[in-house]
Design a protein around this nucleic acid. Structure first.
Lengths: 344, 344
DNA sequence: GGCTGAAGTGGGAGCGCTCCCACATCGATG
DNA sequence: CATCGATGTGGGAGCGCTCCCACTTCAGCC
């Protein structure tokens, strides 16, 4: 135990102390701290010096109490299906969000919601307006959270949307377009029996990817065949099972478009287990172009969506909505890009 | 614009309002809210009903102002080397931390520190004591943050430690023991020329893993050969380059112990490029047993460390330290376990 | 020289809470 | 029956800040 631990830690200086030292009033110090222009150069200099000498840092709680701002935003990640660690998508969003937030003085609260109990806790938290805004990732159609955000009139931005009529702000990738590009690519490689393992169809993104798949086939005048569609859930396991199903139903299948990289990784596994070679026998395309795509054997052709950029854009939209809660929403759709690797 | 948007949102009820409604004083409501036992059953019931009727939620800012607690802890992740998304380790820690925190009323602040500027911002933030405690992940020997935490006497728990004399609380896995088990396993498989690709040696964990490797060889009376040691940095790229180096120096090498799964994934790639078969020509063992280990081809034998559990334990230690800042530290070392898969 | 308005400034009020002290109230005790 | 501690209770004070209003100062103008 050090001697230093014994003596009371020097109390943090208050705004009042700064004012006294600078020989000005509290109001002036407050103005300087908050960057108001209505301060003379002389007063500003005196205050700034006093702040430096005293090592003054504003007390956030006191500020919040009167402004009823919190200077914090929550990033909400439902972890019902996917684990954080197996979903590079989440991590990339977090990275983007954090990077964009670093330029502001907002703090990032990370809220993982695993079950009903935790969702209720979050509901209370949001109701108490303990954050200035919310970023919500992985939106399901029946998710009650977006509605809550609407009711609370809390600034919010979604990654994804519930439907095309989504009233809240959102940022998402051109899912249908990406899927279309992927399937066209497979067609151009001469594949004819192209299957798909979808994502969870209670998510608009997964629905859009399936729609893009169908559209590309329709455009090429390939007759639709529901036997070529297996339902997954974005997980590896779902991909594996979906692929098995597909192989059982259509042994002649020569390509598969997977709704996520993880799904594709599962599909690769199922194909390997079934003795099919990739890409010779069956070509595989994923979606996300996450780290996973580079690590599989063979590396995955995948539809790149700018996930980190999406995180950044979400923050930018949120900031605007916080700045002027004018209720007009920002809805951004980002382009995707096909990255071709050995799997196709 | 809905009509509801026009009318002023009902102001949140205050403690005072609850007191009035329950026909008691502010003090009594405060006692009920904070679970003090010094309240009669009758008063408690009245207050609880009033709270329910009014939908009262305490104002955190006001509470913080007087208690100078913040009810938040920061999880600090330096992102200098590794990206969040490529490091399942970080994600698993986050998951554990979040899960354990869910049972408390503490909030989780996620702070990714990418560069000097962001570190300074964090320093200011911690100096202002805007959190009740700090969890620090990925500790490097020359990291200035632990020292800052010591000086501030801010409750803190590290994942890992700077050295064996670490004065702060920490949670870590038995790195040396795990490495030893891995190398013994390789020896037991009849491997004789066993190399290693280390982690960044400015991290105690990486040093310990290297020490464990050496120890196992020494115990088996295998003469040490520095040609079998390549330096990596826990990344895939480092693993790939390290493996190439090793192959160049010791073409007869028949096994390699990698300081992380990512490193091992890189090593697998280098081996494939060099035309070596795994495990026939060269056996590979990783460390962490993260999701990566299951996804490589072939799946990796790996030393499992209970990463998520580490996150949970960090929180528990931190809670105790916050509860009674008695300066006596908790230092926990968790056992590791070898998980054998196809790569060895 | 008096008047006006712009530009700064000081400080009271009050945000919603906890802390703490003074003050009941009441059963047990000598 | 007075006295006493134990058990609850009400409410003043004050946490550190921003907001806002009243006030001063002074340049510019008729």
């Amino acid at each position: 135990m050090t001697p230093a631990a014994q003596q009371p830690p020097a109390a943090r200086p208050t705004l009042e102390a700064v004012a006294a030292r600078a020989g000005v009033g509290r109001g002036t110090v407050s103005r300087v701290v908050n960057g108001s222009p209505k301060v003379s150069a002389k007063a500003r200099a005196a205050v700034e010096q006093a702040i430096a000498e005293l090592g003054y840092v504003p007390n956030q709680a006191a500020r919040s109490l009167v402004t009823s701002r919190t200077d914090a935003v929550a990033l909400v990640v439902p972890e019902s299906v996917a684990k954080l660690s197996s979903e590079p998508y989440f991590s990339d969003i977090i990275t983007g969000v954090s990077a964009e937030l670093a330029g502001t003085d907002l703090q990032l609260l990370l809220v993982l919601v695993r079950d009903e109990r935790e969702r209720e806790r979050l509901t209370r938290y949001l109701t108490a307006r303990r954050v200035d805004g919310v970023l919500l990732v992985s939106v399901h159609q029946d998710d009650p959270l977006p509605e809550l955000l609407e009711q609370l009139e809390l600034p919010a931005v979604l990654a994804g949307r519930r439907s095309e009529q989504e009233p809240l702000s959102y940022v998402l990738a051109d899912n249908a377009g990406g899927a279309r590009a992927a399937v066209r690519h497979l067609l151009s490689r001469g594949r004819t029996a192209i299957g798909t393992v979808t994502g969870p169809l209670d998510m608009e993104g997964a629905v859009a990817r399936l729609a893009g798949y169908r559209q590309a086939l329709a455009e090429a005048a390939v007759p639709a065949d529901e036997g070529l569609v297996a339902h997954g859930d974005f997980t590896e396991r779902g991909g594996r099972e979906g692929m098995r199903e597909l192989l059982a139903r259509r042994p002649d299948l020569d390509a598969v478009f997977c709704a996520s990289d993880l799904t594709a990784a599962g599909a690769l596994r199922a194909l390997r287990e079934a003795g099919r070679r990739v890409p010779q026998d069956v070509a595989v395309v994923g979606f996300d172009d996450s780290v996973v795509a580079r690590h599989t054997e063979p590396p995955l052709t995948s539809v790149r969506q700018p996930t980190e950029e999406m995180g950044r854009l979400m923050v930018r939209s949120l900031l605007k909505e916080i700045a002027q809660p004018g209720r007009f929403r920002r809805q951004t759709v980002l382009p995707t890009e096909l990255v071709v690797r050995e799997s196709s």
